[in-house]
């Protein structure tokens, strides 16, 4: 069985114990990065939607990428529970929520630019027979640092390396499409992830992996998210990921199928499948799963035999995020 580790430094630490190991690549050997450079003065999503209002605008507000940080609902069970807890005074300050059906956290704007404070109390939404409940509710406090150091990179846009200050909540178009040039209107292939770009798998994978690989770490900052990644960059020049079998096997099904796909592309040079084969991001849809093949990657969730709609039991929980 192969034992494969990619850590710090990443370039020379691939170890295979078998002589017939598949062709392996150096994930950091191509492209550029923006480590140490200022965050680009990118075109904001609101400007993008001025032109893309018809196709993207009507549905983007409901897209998960646009809701990685979302307004708290005044009538939510979570807020109701907080209002009856020792944190009832803090509850009135809550402006945003992160997280989903596994766990949710609460946020308020900080006084500093591009900062949010994270409430120490979490909410576990109702699940199967279990009612919703609060976690760490006894001595709630606002944590001024944790969001910036642990969450901002994947829940907000354009995070600075030094102060972890973001320029917009949730994920702006820039996160996946980069610093779009004006000429893209007539040459759409200039935009990362544009269908006409016919991008290499490693470029696509880098973009998705910046957040969906939840076992990575920036070499330059030590944070669990990339340092100033700009779509089109090679994520793995600065983002270290343990691709070993043991690391991958320990992941939830959802995380595992992501990391396996990334590993296939950046280590083994298999370019047939990327996230976009199955996921239609703008339409919030995984409808393309109907086309699911019987590769090892797909068999994380699907059975080799029988109807594709019958799934194996799977989980999406990640220790990195707590939900």
């Amino acid at each position: 069985m192969a034992a494969l580790v990619m850590g710090v430094p990443a370039l020379s630490c691939l170890v295979w114990s078998e002589s017939d190991a598949p062709r392996r690549l150096d994930p950091a050997a191509w492209g550029e990065d923006h480590v140490g450079r200022p965050v680009p003065a990118y075109t904001t999503g609101d400007e993008c939607l001025f032109c893309h209002r018809l196709k993207i605008g009507p549905t983007w507000g409901a897209n998960r990428h646009a809701r990685t940080i979302r307004d708290v609902e005044e009538q939510s069970p979570a807020l109701d529970a907080l209002r009856q807890s020792p944190g009832k005074e803090l509850a009135e300050e809550i402006r945003f929520v992160v997280g989903g059906s596994w766990r949710q956290r609460f946020l308020k704007p900080a006084t500093a630019y591009g900062k949010l404070e994270l409430l120490s109390t979490a909410w576990i939404p109702p699940r199967e027979e279990q009612p919703g409940r609060l976690l760490s509710a006894n001595r709630p406090y606002w944590d001024a640092d944790q969001f910036g150091t642990s969450c901002a990179g994947c829940h907000a846009t354009a995070v600075t390396a030094d102060e972890q200050a973001f320029s917009a909540v949730s994920l702006d178009c820039y996160v996946c499409h980069g610093n779009v040039v004006p000429e893209h209107a007539t040459n759409p292939e200039l935009v990362p992830l544009a269908p006409r770009r016919m991008a290499e798998a490693r470029e696509v994978i880098s973009i998705c992996a910046q957040c969906h690989v939840r076992i990575g770490k920036s070499r330059s900052t030590g944070r669990p998210f990339p340092n100033n990644f700009v779509a089109g960059d090679n994520l793995f020049r600065d983002f270290a990921v343990d691709f070993s079998d043991s690391a991958v096997d320990s992941l939830s099904t959802a995380d595992r199928h992501v990391v396996e796909n990334v590993r296939d592309v950046v280590l083994f040079g298999k370019e047939e499948v990327t996230c976009l084969n199955c996921h239609d991001v703008h339409n919030n849809s995984s409808r393309k799963h109907r086309r699911v093949a019987k590769s090892g990657l797909c068999l994380n969730c699907h059975h080799a035999q029988g109807p594709k709609r019958t799934l194996k039991p799977f989980s999406i929980h990640s220790q990195a995020c707590g939900y």
């Binding site: 609101d46 939607l49 605008g57 507000g61």
Partner: peptide, 11 residues
């Protein structure tokens, strides 16, 4: 109006 023209600030 035409709130869809904003990513997150439509309100």
């Amino acid at each position: 109006g035409y709130a869809s023209q904003s990513r997150t600030l439509g309100h």
